[in-house]
Simulated scan of single mutants.
Amino acid sequence: MFGLGWLEVVALVVIALLVFGPEKLPQAAAQAGKTLRNLRQMANNAKNDLQAGLGPEFSDFDPADLNPKNFVRKHLTGPLEDDWNRDSADPPVHVDSYAAEAAGELGYGEIPPYDPEAT
């Protein structure tokens, strides 16, 4: 429940009883529930308005993809997960051009090539 342990929940209940008192606590909880429900409804309406305003070409748009964590996960690991046949035991091995060039590594004491235009 929101990453809280039972000890934290008990502490929150005790603090709520001390702040609101036993008479007003049910009213405060009901008001908090209504406020949360209204906020959730407003967020859903804003999401639906945004998707409707973007048009059909953005039908697969999800605002959660704008979260940097989800964005990086989707764009860095997306093609690998799509190509991987989940029935096979081993995932495919992807070799890019940099890895192929890295196979010709320099030996000890060798001087790397110098490109004056790159500096």
Score class of each variant (00 low, 15 high):
Ala29Trp: 01
Ala100Thr: 12
Lys69Leu: 07
Gln31Pro: 00
Lys74Arg: 15
Leu25Arg: 04
Gln41Tyr: 04
Leu18Thr: 05
Gly109Lys: 14
Ile111Arg: 13
Ala52Asn: 07
Phe20Thr: 02
His94Arg: 14
Pro79Arg: 14
Asp90Ser: 04
Glu8Arg: 03
Gly5Arg: 04
Thr77Tyr: 10
Leu50Cys: 08
Asp65Glu: 15
Ser88Gly: 03
Gly55Leu: 07
Gly55Met: 05
Gly78Met: 02
Met42Thr: 13
Asn45Phe: 12
Asp82Thr: 12
Tyr108Leu: 09
Gln31Val: 13
Leu18Tyr: 06
Gly5Asn: 11
Leu66Lys: 07
Gly33Ile: 06
Asp96Gln: 06
Asp87Glu: 15
Leu80Cys: 05
Asp65Phe: 06
Lys69Glu: 05
Gly33Tyr: 01
Asp62Glu: 15
Pro113Tyr: 03
Leu54Asp: 10
Val95Thr: 14
Ser59Val: 14
Phe71Val: 00
Pro91Asp: 05
Ala28Val: 04
Ala103Met: 08
Ile15Arg: 15
Phe58Ala: 08
Glu110Cys: 05
Asn70Gln: 07
Ala64Ile: 11
Asn70Arg: 05
Thr119Tyr: 09
Lys74His: 11
Ala29Tyr: 05
Asp65Met: 12
Asn45Glu: 09
Leu50Ala: 09
Ala100Asn: 08
Pro26Glu: 02
Asn48Val: 10
Ala16Met: 10
Lys47Ile: 09
Phe2Ile: 12
Ala43Ser: 09
Pro113Phe: 02
Ala46Glu: 14
Leu54Ser: 07
Gly5Trp: 00
Gly53Trp: 00
Gln31Met: 14
Pro113Gly: 02
Ala118Cys: 06
Ala32His: 00
Pro79Cys: 11
Pro63Ser: 03
Tyr114Leu: 03
Val93Ser: 13
Pro56His: 12
Arg86Gly: 01
Glu101Gln: 14
Arg40Lys: 14
Thr35Glu: 01
Thr77Val: 10
Asp82Cys: 06
Thr77Pro: 00
Ala100Trp: 09
Ile111Glu: 11
Tyr114Ala: 05
Gly21Phe: 07
Glu117Leu: 13
Thr119His: 04
Ala89Tyr: 05
Val93Arg: 14
Ser88Val: 10
Asp83His: 11
Leu25Ile: 07
